[in-house]
């Protein structure tokens, strides 16, 4: 199919983009890599009246180190660019996840900002960013704010982002002490998205053995949007045992579809969380 007709704008700067967004036309959508938005426009599930194409804005691209050792990832950074950046090697789970997202074309077009803004319930990267305690930096003509990713997602395809706001960057805090991370997922074989995926970051602030005092676990494909499995985190911090994965869906309404019903998905995510924990423990150092 082809999409409905729409008005197309191509601002020259972030400020221009924000000015266009400030016109607050409810039918307006930002276009980044287009790999989530355009397919749903072609099937007419999405019918935006206006697209603001930001795909070419260099200001929003690139990865750089922050003063505190954290990482700033421009919203328009593609998966491929991120994967090629040496800075990410310390985040083992990013090296796990990025090569598994879509295919080469998807990774060359799909952007980090788009992945966060779209809030696909089964997207891979958001679970990893959750586990990394990422922050979302947004701007609008009214000003800017920084939102912890843990309070960014609101439900399927839904976030706290306001219609006039643009995501400009994603920030990852510095990695410190001994820590390890891993992403383990089983693909939904048709779409390649996660049927159930678990991102784990664990760490000890004091090196050289001892108890873990940090555990962050992001889960995708299971709930209505990616979430942190805090029950697993707490259990793991006290037991140090990957069996804590049994709590992966505590308090979550587990999704059910033709590929995985509630019961199977629940069993599957427990396995993935446990395996991700085991892999992360092995990588600690």
């Amino acid at each position: 199919m082809t999409s409905l007709a729409f008005d197309y704008r191509r601002p020259d700067s972030v400020d221009q983009a924000l000015a266009l967004l400030a016109e607050a036309d409810p039918g307006t959508k930002v276009l980044a890599g287009g790999h989530s938005l355009l397919p749903i426009m072609k099937t007419r599930l999405a019918q935006p009246g206006r697209l603001i194409d930001i795909g070419h804005l260099g200001e929003l691209r690139g990865v750089h180190r922050l003063g505190d050792g954290g990482l700033s990832i421009g919203a328009l950074t593609t998966y491929s660019r991120l994967l090629a950046n040496p800075a990410i090697t310390v985040y083992g789970l990013l090296a796990d996840v990025l090569p598994t997202i879509g295919d080469v074309q998807v990774r060359n077009r799909g952007t980090i900002g788009g992945a966060v803004a779209h809030v696909d319930p089964a997207a891979d990267l958001p679970a990893c960013l959750l586990a990394l305690d990422a922050e979302v930096v947004v701007r609008s003509a009214r000003g800017g704010r920084t939102i912890a990713l843990t309070s960014f997602f609101e439900g399927a395809f839904n976030s706290v982002l306001l219609p006039d706001e643009l995501i400009t960057e994603i920030r990852l805090p510095a990695a410190s002490g001994d820590y390890g991370s891993a992403y383990r997922a089983q693909e939904q074989p048709a779409s390649g998205y996660a049927l159930a995926g678990a991102a784990v970051v664990i760490g000890r602030s004091t090196g050289g053995g001892g108890r873990f005092d940090r555990a962050a676990i992001g889960i995708t494909g299971v709930g209505e949007c990616p979430y942190r499995a805090s029950a697993v985190e707490q259990e793991f911090l006290s037991s140090g045992d990957p069996a804590a994965a049994a709590h992966a869906t505590d308090g979550v309404l587990v999704a059910s579809d033709i590929h995985a019903d509630r019961e199977y998905r629940t069993a599957l995510i427990r396995v993935q969380v446990r395996r991700a924990l085991e892999a992360a423990i092995e990588r600690v150092g």
Binding site: T43, Q188, P189, A190, S191, I258, H259
Partner: peptide
């Protein structure tokens, strides 16, 4: 291993695209 057309009881094709029909 993967393929199968899935209809619901009303005759809607649930495996209606390559997003849900695995090749």
């Amino acid at each position: 291993l993967w393929e199968g057309a899935v209809y619901d009881d009303q005759g809607q094709l649930l495996s209606g695209s390559l997003l849900d029909y695995a090749l």
